[in-house]
Design a protein around this nucleic acid. Structure first.
Length: 591
RNA sequence: GCGCCCGUAGCUCAGUAGGAUAGAGCGUCGGUUUCCUAAACCGAAGGUCGCAGGUUCGAAUCCUGCCGGGCGUACCA
């Protein structure tokens, strides 16, 4: 099914070309800014009129005269300085509704792209030996949403979880493992089931020992070398740490309904053997040079505080490599081995300079074209005090704790609102609502802005929140249940609709919005902005609520009820699809 | 200093290649329940879109300057 807006754009575009005698101009069909202007408005007449030096309203008249559109719209109206307003015919909307309902692929009438691309999405990227914290939330869920959107559009998405699993800090940690082993009583092997909390404690111990104990520091250095060369027990310790931590990642991802799996993990260590080659190649290409002992690329257009060229450092003066080096290696790998047409990096906005430089250097080296590299930046999660969210002790808020609190708070609301539900159902609702609220609040904010994290707001029943959306869905499901209780065969009845009967304003309004799901997905995907999707869904839920209060479903007459059941069903399917397929938020049948 | 982002209702925020009278939610005020979940719905009040110029048929949106805030800016990631 071709999106309505695209059909309109084509038809208007053709009529415009005729009217302007070959002078080209975009139709610029947009959703109407106000319902009283209809459903869509044509913004392209005025620029075109300017080109042909004619009064815009006269041009609009000419366009309308040749325009063949009465199969879709009511008579177009010219308004204001030269807008053409378009209002969809109820008949057309009714037909569309049935097409969406008949969509055998269950895609709600949304076509796949005709130009599928291979798109690498780099997101989440937590660190080994540490718990995931609130700083990983946005990258993880926004990245996941982008993957889901692109995949639904038909692209080949390659998720890459670029975890921090390499670096000198692991030398310390491995050295501590070794120490514990040596000091353990004979026969008592190191506990292989150590938890992440243990590892975090080890981490603290190791840091302190490293500072205060020379022998330990030496062992740590040996361990770093050992990790590189693969000698000694070091790699075994490291693998154990990785295993324990990734298990924790998995738990968090599952809880968040994020589609990241173990096979998407390709951490920094994966690229360790490519780093020297990256430096060598950049040197060979005369892009990298030595400066103050470090190997640097000085891409044009970047300046430091003193106005000197700003370096992109790829090798430290002590010979060690940096994340710049790893990122270059990863980038090259993704283009050359994963055959990426596009690479999307989902990280916080503070890293934008790094990515600007990375992309520039990659382009200079000929590893990628600039327009295939995209940094999707996002703002910070702030506490009520307007500063980055932290615990009272000033520590990072652990994601696990944050989600647990969200679920607990949701549980309290369920207990209050619906105390008679069975306990396991309450838990299910609390989980969906609590986790959903955290995710939805993040998605519904503008990606690029910081936002203030507030359990109270995200769990509110009013407004653009997960519970509101989930409630709308649950109410529809309740209608279906009630219908069945009354002996109405809901599926049968709506499947027999041959012509949707959209006479009530609330019905037509809801139906029109359902037809436009594809537009919301397109808008969200093209700018990588989940909030366009949440805005659409919220509007859908609002329109459903209006319909719900104005149009009885089960008590409607035989001429009305089938269409209303159909509207309910398609609304439920759209909400469910948007929430659970595209945003990764669970819906519940009952709240 | 330079660079990036931001400044929209009392509060939190939307505003989809510049479009018509700038929208929600919270809060405030008023109304709706013998009726499919009131975790809902309807209505009202509330704005010099930081300030000043500019570009043009038209600017919250683009350009310039200023004010205010956040972040970044050579060997952390």
């Amino acid at each position: 099914m071709k999106p309505v807006i695209d059909i309109l754009d084509e038809r208007i575009g053709a009529a415009m070309a005729k009217a302007a005698g070959g002078v080209r101009g975009a139709a610029m069909v947009r959703p109407a800014t106000d319902p009283k202007f209809g459903d869509y408005q044509v913004n392209g007449v005025m620029p075109l009129a300017k080109k042909v030096q004619t009064d815009p309203r006269t041009v609009a008249e000419l366009i309308i005269r040749t325009l063949k559109i009465n199969d879709i719209c009511e008579k177009p109206e010219i308004a204001g300085p030269g807008f053409i307003n378009l209002r969809l015919k109820a008949n057309f909307v009714a037909d569309r509704l049935l097409e969406i309902n008949a969509d055998s692929q269950k895609r709600l009438g949304v076509e796949k792209t005709t130009q599928p691309k291979t798109i690498v999405v780099d997101f989440s990227g937590p660190n080994i030996a540490k718990q995931m914290h609130v700083g990983h939330l946005r990258s993880t869920i926004i990245g996941d949403c982008i993957c889901r959107l692109l995949e639904f559009q038909g692209h080949d998405v390659k998720r890459q979880n670029h975890i921090g699993d390499w670096g000198t800090q692991f030398g310390m940690l491995c050295a501590l493992f070794d120490k514990i082993l040596l000091e353990a009583p004979r026969g008592e092997a190191i506990n292989r089931d150590e938890t992440l909390a243990d590892i975090e404690e080890f981490y603290r111990q190791a840091q302190s020992l490293y500072k205060n104990n020379e022998e330990f520091a030496r062992t740590a250095h040996v361990a770093v070398v050992g990790l590189h060369t693969g000698d000694g027990p070091w790699v075994t310790y490291w693998k154990g740490i990785v295993k324990t931590t990734t298990k924790h990642f998995r738990e968090v991802y599952d809880r968040l309904c994020v589609t990241l799996k173990d096979e998407h993990i390709r951490g920094e260590s994966f690229y360790k053997d490519m780093l020297s080659d990256i430096v060598a190649e950049l040197k060979k290409k005369k892009l990298a040079e030595e400066s103050d002992g470090a190997v640097c690329v000085f891409p044009e257009g970047f300046k430091n505080k003193e106005g000197q060229p700003l370096p992109f450092i790829i090798q430290k003066s002590d010979g060690a490599y940096l994340y710049a080096t790893t990122d270059l290696a990863a980038l090259r790998y993704r283009v050359q081995e994963l055959k990426a047409d596009r690479i999307i990096y989902v990280t916080d906005a503070r890293q934008s300079l790094h990515f600007q430089m990375l992309f520039k250097v990659a382009a200079l080296a000929g590893w990628a074209k600039p327009d295939m590299l995209i940094h999707i930046a996002f703002g910070s999660v702030l506490g009520e005090n307007g500063k980055p969210l932290r615990t009272r002790e000033g520590e990072n808020v652990k994601l696990k704790d944050l989600l647990t609190e969200a679920v607990e708070r949701a549980k309290a609301v369920v207990e209050e609102k619906n105390p008679d539900l069975p306990p396991e159902r309450k838990d299910e609702i609390a989980r969906a609502v609590g986790i959903g609220a955290v995710k939805y609040a993040d998605f519904s904010n503008n990606r690029t802005s910081d936002y203030v994290f507030s359990f109270n707001k995200m769990l509110a029943m009013d407004g653009n929140t997960a519970p509101y959306m989930q409630y709308a869905y649950a109410r529809i499901k309740s209608i279906e249940r009630k219908g069945k209780d009354r002996g109405i065969d809901v599926e049968e009845e709506q499947s027999k609709v041959e012509k949707a009967n959209l006479t009530e304003p609330a019905e037509l309004d809801l139906a029109k919005h359902l037809v436009r799901y594809v537009e919301a997905i397109g808008a969200a995907a093209v700018d990588y902005r989940p909030n366009y999707l949440t805005a659409y869904l919220y509007e859908l839920a609002q329109k459903f609520s209006a319909f719900y209060t104005n149009c009885p479903v089960l008590d409607a007459g035989a001429d009305k009820r089938p269409t209303r059941l159909l509207l309910c069903d398609l609304t439920a399917k759209t909400i469910k699809h948007g929430l659970s397929e595209l945003l990764g938020i669970e819906v519940v049948e009952q709240m």
